[in-house]
Simulated assay, not measured.
Amino acid sequence: MNHSNSRFSNILFYIIITCLIFIISPTITRFLDQTTLPNDISQLLGGLLFTLLAISFVLFIHRQKNKNIFADIGLLSKVNLPFYIALALPIVLLTLSIVLGMITGTITNLSLSSDNSVWCAFLLNILVAFLYEAFPEELLVRGVILSELRKKLSFLPTLFLLPLIFALIGFLSHVFSTLIITGNLTIPPLLIPIQLYIFGIALQLYREYSKSIWPSIIFHLICLELSRYVFNQQNNPIIVFNESMTGMMMLIGLFITMYLGSIISLSILLFWKSKK
Protein backbone atom coordinates (compact mmCIF):
# COMPACT_ATOMS: atom_id res chain seq x y z
CA MET A 1 0.00 0.00 0.00
CA ASN A 2 1.46 3.40 -0.96
CA HIS A 3 1.62 6.38 1.39
CA SER A 4 -1.46 8.07 -0.11
CA ASN A 5 -3.62 4.96 0.26
CA SER A 6 -2.32 4.46 3.81
CA ARG A 7 -3.28 8.03 4.70
CA PHE A 8 -6.76 7.58 3.24
CA SER A 9 -7.25 4.32 5.17
CA ASN A 10 -6.24 6.10 8.38
CA ILE A 11 -8.78 8.86 7.76
CA LEU A 12 -11.52 6.34 7.07
CA PHE A 13 -10.56 4.30 10.15
CA TYR A 14 -10.62 7.41 12.38
CA ILE A 15 -14.02 8.48 11.03
CA ILE A 16 -15.54 5.02 11.58
CA ILE A 17 -14.23 4.70 15.17
CA THR A 18 -15.34 8.26 15.97
CA CYS A 19 -18.79 7.52 14.60
CA LEU A 20 -19.01 4.36 16.73
CA ILE A 21 -18.00 6.28 19.86
CA PHE A 22 -20.59 8.95 19.03
CA ILE A 23 -23.25 6.22 18.81
CA ILE A 24 -22.21 4.12 21.82
CA SER A 25 -22.03 6.99 24.34
CA PRO A 26 -25.52 8.51 23.85
CA THR A 27 -27.04 5.05 23.55
CA ILE A 28 -25.70 3.97 26.95
CA THR A 29 -26.65 7.35 28.42
CA ARG A 30 -30.23 6.94 27.21
CA PHE A 31 -30.31 3.45 28.72
CA LEU A 32 -29.19 4.96 32.03
CA ASP A 33 -31.92 7.62 31.71
CA GLN A 34 -34.47 4.81 31.84
CA THR A 35 -33.16 3.55 35.18
CA THR A 36 -33.89 4.97 38.64
CA LEU A 37 -30.74 7.10 38.48
CA PRO A 38 -31.30 10.88 38.57
CA ASN A 39 -31.03 12.38 35.08
CA ASP A 40 -27.97 14.46 36.00
CA ILE A 41 -26.13 11.37 37.24
CA SER A 42 -26.89 9.35 34.11
CA GLN A 43 -25.71 12.27 31.96
CA LEU A 44 -22.54 12.57 34.02
CA LEU A 45 -21.82 8.84 33.72
CA GLY A 46 -22.46 9.03 29.98
CA GLY A 47 -20.06 11.95 29.77
CA LEU A 48 -17.37 10.07 31.63
CA LEU A 49 -17.81 7.14 29.25
CA PHE A 50 -17.62 9.39 26.16
CA THR A 51 -14.49 11.12 27.41
CA LEU A 52 -12.80 7.85 28.43
CA LEU A 53 -13.53 6.29 25.03
CA ALA A 54 -12.17 9.36 23.25
CA ILE A 55 -8.99 9.47 25.35
CA SER A 56 -8.51 5.71 24.96
CA PHE A 57 -8.71 6.04 21.19
CA VAL A 58 -6.14 8.85 21.17
CA LEU A 59 -3.82 6.74 23.36
CA PHE A 60 -4.27 3.83 20.95
CA ILE A 61 -3.27 6.08 18.03
CA HIS A 62 -0.27 7.31 20.02
CA ARG A 63 0.94 3.77 20.66
CA GLN A 64 0.11 2.15 17.33
CA LYS A 65 0.07 4.77 14.60
CA ASN A 66 1.35 8.23 15.46
CA LYS A 67 3.72 9.10 18.31
CA ASN A 68 3.17 12.82 17.63
CA ILE A 69 -0.63 12.70 17.89
CA PHE A 70 -0.78 14.96 20.99
CA ALA A 71 1.12 17.70 19.17
CA ASP A 72 -0.79 17.12 15.91
CA ILE A 73 -4.19 17.62 17.53
CA GLY A 74 -3.07 20.73 19.39
CA LEU A 75 -3.63 19.28 22.83
CA LEU A 76 -0.25 20.46 24.13
CA SER A 77 0.21 23.59 22.03
CA LYS A 78 2.09 26.61 23.34
CA VAL A 79 0.01 29.49 24.65
CA ASN A 80 0.42 32.59 22.47
CA LEU A 81 -1.46 35.75 21.46
CA PRO A 82 -3.81 34.01 18.97
CA PHE A 83 -4.64 31.49 21.71
CA TYR A 84 -5.73 34.29 24.08
CA ILE A 85 -7.62 36.10 21.34
CA ALA A 86 -9.49 32.89 20.46
CA LEU A 87 -10.42 32.44 24.14
CA ALA A 88 -11.61 36.04 24.49
CA LEU A 89 -13.61 36.20 21.26
CA PRO A 90 -16.67 34.21 22.48
CA ILE A 91 -17.01 36.52 25.51
CA VAL A 92 -16.84 39.60 23.25
CA LEU A 93 -19.45 38.10 20.92
CA LEU A 94 -21.74 37.17 23.81
CA THR A 95 -21.59 40.75 25.08
CA LEU A 96 -22.30 41.99 21.55
CA SER A 97 -25.33 39.66 21.26
CA ILE A 98 -26.85 41.06 24.47
CA VAL A 99 -26.18 44.65 23.36
CA LEU A 100 -27.73 43.97 19.93
CA GLY A 101 -30.75 42.39 21.57
CA MET A 102 -31.28 45.42 23.81
CA ILE A 103 -30.65 48.03 21.10
CA THR A 104 -33.06 46.39 18.66
CA GLY A 105 -35.70 45.91 21.35
CA THR A 106 -35.54 42.15 20.94
CA ILE A 107 -34.99 41.78 24.69
CA THR A 108 -36.15 43.88 27.63
CA ASN A 109 -36.09 43.65 31.43
CA LEU A 110 -32.69 41.96 31.53
CA SER A 111 -31.66 40.51 34.90
CA LEU A 112 -29.75 37.64 36.52
CA SER A 113 -31.76 34.76 37.95
CA SER A 114 -32.06 34.76 41.74
CA ASP A 115 -32.95 31.05 41.82
CA ASN A 116 -30.06 29.16 43.42
CA SER A 117 -31.28 25.84 41.99
CA VAL A 118 -30.96 27.25 38.47
CA TRP A 119 -27.35 28.27 39.11
CA CYS A 120 -26.57 24.85 40.61
CA ALA A 121 -28.06 23.14 37.55
CA PHE A 122 -26.06 25.46 35.29
CA LEU A 123 -22.76 24.74 37.07
CA LEU A 124 -23.38 20.99 37.04
CA ASN A 125 -24.25 21.13 33.35
CA ILE A 126 -20.91 22.80 32.59
CA LEU A 127 -19.17 19.66 33.86
CA VAL A 128 -21.63 17.33 32.09
CA ALA A 129 -21.43 19.24 28.80
CA PHE A 130 -17.62 19.29 28.94
CA LEU A 131 -17.41 15.52 29.45
CA TYR A 132 -20.37 14.50 27.30
CA GLU A 133 -19.97 16.85 24.34
CA ALA A 134 -17.34 19.60 24.17
CA PHE A 135 -14.13 17.77 25.09
CA PRO A 136 -14.60 14.33 23.45
CA GLU A 137 -16.22 15.73 20.29
CA GLU A 138 -13.43 18.27 19.76
CA LEU A 139 -10.74 15.74 20.64
CA LEU A 140 -12.02 13.30 18.03
CA VAL A 141 -13.29 15.60 15.25
CA ARG A 142 -11.21 18.80 15.36
CA GLY A 143 -8.35 16.78 16.86
CA VAL A 144 -7.86 13.27 15.47
CA ILE A 145 -9.77 13.48 12.17
CA LEU A 146 -8.66 17.02 11.30
CA SER A 147 -4.99 16.32 12.01
CA GLU A 148 -5.08 13.36 9.62
CA LEU A 149 -7.03 15.27 6.95
CA ARG A 150 -4.50 18.11 7.06
CA LYS A 151 -1.71 15.67 6.16
CA LYS A 152 -3.49 15.08 2.85
CA LEU A 153 -5.47 18.29 2.21
CA SER A 154 -4.82 22.02 2.62
CA PHE A 155 -6.73 24.25 5.02
CA LEU A 156 -9.53 25.44 2.71
CA PRO A 157 -10.80 22.03 1.51
CA THR A 158 -10.84 20.71 5.07
CA LEU A 159 -12.77 23.80 6.22
CA PHE A 160 -15.74 22.64 4.15
CA LEU A 161 -15.16 18.87 4.29
CA LEU A 162 -14.71 18.34 8.04
CA PRO A 163 -17.92 20.18 9.09
CA LEU A 164 -19.75 17.92 6.63
CA ILE A 165 -18.20 14.87 8.33
CA PHE A 166 -19.11 16.36 11.74
CA ALA A 167 -22.74 16.90 10.67
CA LEU A 168 -22.91 13.38 9.20
CA ILE A 169 -21.51 11.79 12.37
CA GLY A 170 -23.98 13.77 14.49
CA PHE A 171 -26.83 12.73 12.19
CA LEU A 172 -25.87 9.04 12.33
CA SER A 173 -25.40 9.20 16.09
CA HIS A 174 -28.95 10.50 16.54
CA VAL A 175 -30.48 8.01 14.12
CA PHE A 176 -28.75 4.87 15.43
CA SER A 177 -28.93 5.68 19.15
CA THR A 178 -32.67 6.38 18.78
CA LEU A 179 -33.13 3.20 16.74
CA ILE A 180 -31.33 1.07 19.35
CA ILE A 181 -33.27 2.56 22.28
CA THR A 182 -36.77 2.86 20.81
CA GLY A 183 -36.69 0.50 17.83
CA ASN A 184 -37.96 3.36 15.65
CA LEU A 185 -36.09 4.93 12.75
CA THR A 186 -36.33 8.66 13.45
CA ILE A 187 -34.82 11.22 11.08
CA PRO A 188 -33.87 14.51 12.82
CA PRO A 189 -35.09 17.80 11.33
CA LEU A 190 -32.96 19.20 8.49
CA LEU A 191 -32.14 22.22 10.66
CA ILE A 192 -29.97 20.08 12.97
CA PRO A 193 -27.35 18.96 10.39
CA ILE A 194 -27.35 22.50 8.94
CA GLN A 195 -26.68 23.90 12.42
CA LEU A 196 -23.94 21.32 13.00
CA TYR A 197 -22.32 22.24 9.68
CA ILE A 198 -22.20 25.99 10.44
CA PHE A 199 -21.12 25.28 14.02
CA GLY A 200 -18.41 22.97 12.68
CA ILE A 201 -16.96 25.71 10.46
CA ALA A 202 -16.74 28.10 13.42
CA LEU A 203 -15.13 25.43 15.64
CA GLN A 204 -12.56 24.60 12.99
CA LEU A 205 -11.61 28.25 12.57
CA TYR A 206 -10.94 28.50 16.32
CA ARG A 207 -8.71 25.44 15.99
CA GLU A 208 -6.91 26.78 12.92
CA TYR A 209 -6.32 30.28 14.25
CA SER A 210 -5.09 29.27 17.71
CA LYS A 211 -3.26 26.09 16.60
CA SER A 212 -4.73 24.52 19.72
CA ILE A 213 -7.78 22.39 20.38
CA TRP A 214 -8.59 24.17 23.65
CA PRO A 215 -10.24 27.34 22.22
CA SER A 216 -12.55 25.17 20.11
CA ILE A 217 -13.42 23.15 23.23
CA ILE A 218 -14.18 26.34 25.18
CA PHE A 219 -16.24 27.83 22.34
CA HIS A 220 -18.15 24.55 22.00
CA LEU A 221 -18.87 24.53 25.74
CA ILE A 222 -19.92 28.20 25.80
CA CYS A 223 -22.36 27.72 22.93
CA LEU A 224 -23.90 24.68 24.63
CA GLU A 225 -24.47 26.60 27.86
CA LEU A 226 -25.79 29.68 26.06
CA SER A 227 -28.31 27.59 24.13
CA ARG A 228 -29.51 25.92 27.34
CA TYR A 229 -29.26 28.56 30.06
CA VAL A 230 -29.28 31.98 28.37
CA PHE A 231 -30.89 32.18 24.94
CA ASN A 232 -33.55 29.56 25.71
CA GLN A 233 -35.95 31.35 28.06
CA GLN A 234 -38.15 28.26 28.38
CA ASN A 235 -35.51 26.31 30.33
CA ASN A 236 -34.88 28.12 33.67
CA PRO A 237 -32.21 30.52 32.34
CA ILE A 238 -29.48 32.15 34.43
CA ILE A 239 -30.03 35.42 32.53
CA VAL A 240 -33.71 36.34 32.44
CA PHE A 241 -35.29 38.67 29.88
CA ASN A 242 -38.47 39.26 27.91
CA GLU A 243 -38.32 38.61 24.16
CA SER A 244 -40.25 40.54 21.53
CA MET A 245 -40.75 37.18 19.81
CA THR A 246 -40.06 33.74 21.28
CA GLY A 247 -36.79 32.27 19.96
CA MET A 248 -35.40 35.53 18.53
CA MET A 249 -32.38 35.57 20.83
CA MET A 250 -31.58 31.99 19.86
CA LEU A 251 -31.39 33.25 16.27
CA ILE A 252 -29.64 36.56 16.96
CA GLY A 253 -27.45 35.40 19.83
CA LEU A 254 -26.45 31.89 18.84
CA PHE A 255 -26.67 31.62 15.05
CA ILE A 256 -25.90 35.18 13.95
CA THR A 257 -23.59 36.52 16.67
CA MET A 258 -21.83 33.44 18.05
CA TYR A 259 -21.64 31.25 14.93
CA LEU A 260 -21.47 33.75 12.08
CA GLY A 261 -19.69 36.36 14.21
CA SER A 262 -16.96 33.83 14.99
CA ILE A 263 -16.67 32.77 11.35
CA ILE A 264 -16.33 36.36 10.11
CA SER A 265 -14.00 37.49 12.92
CA LEU A 266 -11.69 34.49 12.68
CA SER A 267 -11.60 34.63 8.87
CA ILE A 268 -10.39 38.23 9.13
CA LEU A 269 -7.87 37.32 11.84
CA LEU A 270 -6.55 34.38 9.81
CA PHE A 271 -6.21 36.57 6.70
CA TRP A 272 -4.36 39.21 8.73
CA LYS A 273 -2.16 36.52 10.33
CA SER A 274 -1.24 35.11 6.91
CA LYS A 275 -0.15 38.56 5.71
CA LYS A 276 2.17 39.20 8.67
Score class of each variant (00 low, 15 high):
residue 230 V to H: 00
residue 176 F to L: 12
residue 16 I to G: 06
residue 105 G to T: 03
residue 137 E to D: 07
residue 174 H to F: 15
residue 198 I to R: 01
residue 205 L to W: 01
residue 180 I to S: 09
residue 183 G to D: 14
residue 274 S to H: 11
residue 145 I to D: 05
residue 4 S to H: 14
residue 175 V to K: 09
residue 75 L to S: 07
residue 165 I to C: 10
residue 23 I to T: 05
residue 273 K to R: 13
residue 31 F to Y: 15
residue 8 F to D: 04
residue 37 L to S: 05
residue 235 N to V: 11
residue 39 N to G: 05
residue 110 L to T: 13
residue 265 S to L: 03
residue 262 S to W: 01
residue 83 F to E: 07
residue 171 F to W: 13
residue 120 C to K: 13
residue 108 T to P: 01
residue 10 N to G: 12
residue 138 E to K: 00
residue 274 S to Q: 11
residue 254 L to R: 06
residue 97 S to N: 09
residue 274 S to P: 06
residue 54 A to T: 01
residue 78 K to H: 15
residue 178 T to L: 08
residue 98 I to H: 02
residue 135 F to I: 08
residue 93 L to P: 01
residue 101 G to Q: 02
residue 219 F to T: 13
residue 182 T to Y: 10
residue 202 A to H: 03
residue 126 I to C: 12
residue 191 L to F: 12
residue 144 V to S: 05
residue 163 P to E: 08
residue 1 M to A: 11
residue 164 L to W: 03
residue 91 I to G: 00
residue 154 S to D: 14
residue 208 E to K: 00
residue 202 A to Y: 01
residue 80 N to H: 14
residue 137 E to Q: 11
residue 233 Q to E: 09
residue 247 G to Q: 07
residue 119 W to T: 02
residue 220 H to Y: 11
residue 79 V to P: 08
residue 129 A to I: 05
residue 107 I to L: 02
residue 208 E to T: 13
residue 200 G to A: 06
residue 182 T to W: 07
residue 117 S to F: 11
residue 121 A to N: 10
residue 215 P to G: 08
residue 242 N to H: 13
residue 213 I to A: 09
residue 44 L to W: 01
residue 162 L to F: 06
residue 46 G to C: 05
residue 106 T to C: 08
residue 76 L to C: 14
residue 18 T to V: 01
residue 102 M to T: 15
residue 27 T to K: 05
residue 75 L to D: 02
residue 94 L to T: 15
residue 225 E to C: 05
residue 17 I to S: 07
residue 183 G to H: 12
residue 4 S to G: 09
residue 37 L to H: 06
residue 276 K to N: 13
residue 212 S to N: 06
residue 47 G to M: 01
residue 182 T to P: 09
residue 76 L to F: 14
residue 245 M to L: 10
residue 117 S to R: 10
residue 179 L to I: 10
residue 58 V to I: 15
residue 123 L to K: 10
residue 211 K to F: 09
residue 167 A to R: 02
residue 49 L to I: 09
residue 176 F to I: 15
residue 143 G to W: 02
residue 244 S to P: 02
residue 199 F to S: 11
residue 50 F to C: 03
residue 49 L to C: 02
residue 71 A to E: 14
residue 147 S to L: 08
residue 222 I to P: 00
residue 134 A to R: 00
residue 194 I to R: 08
residue 88 A to M: 11
residue 37 L to Y: 07
residue 128 V to A: 08
residue 34 Q to G: 12
residue 219 F to G: 06
residue 101 G to S: 07
residue 143 G to L: 03
residue 6 S to Y: 14
residue 97 S to G: 10
residue 213 I to L: 11
residue 79 V to D: 07
residue 250 M to L: 11
residue 83 F to M: 05
residue 113 S to A: 10
residue 245 M to K: 14
residue 207 R to T: 14
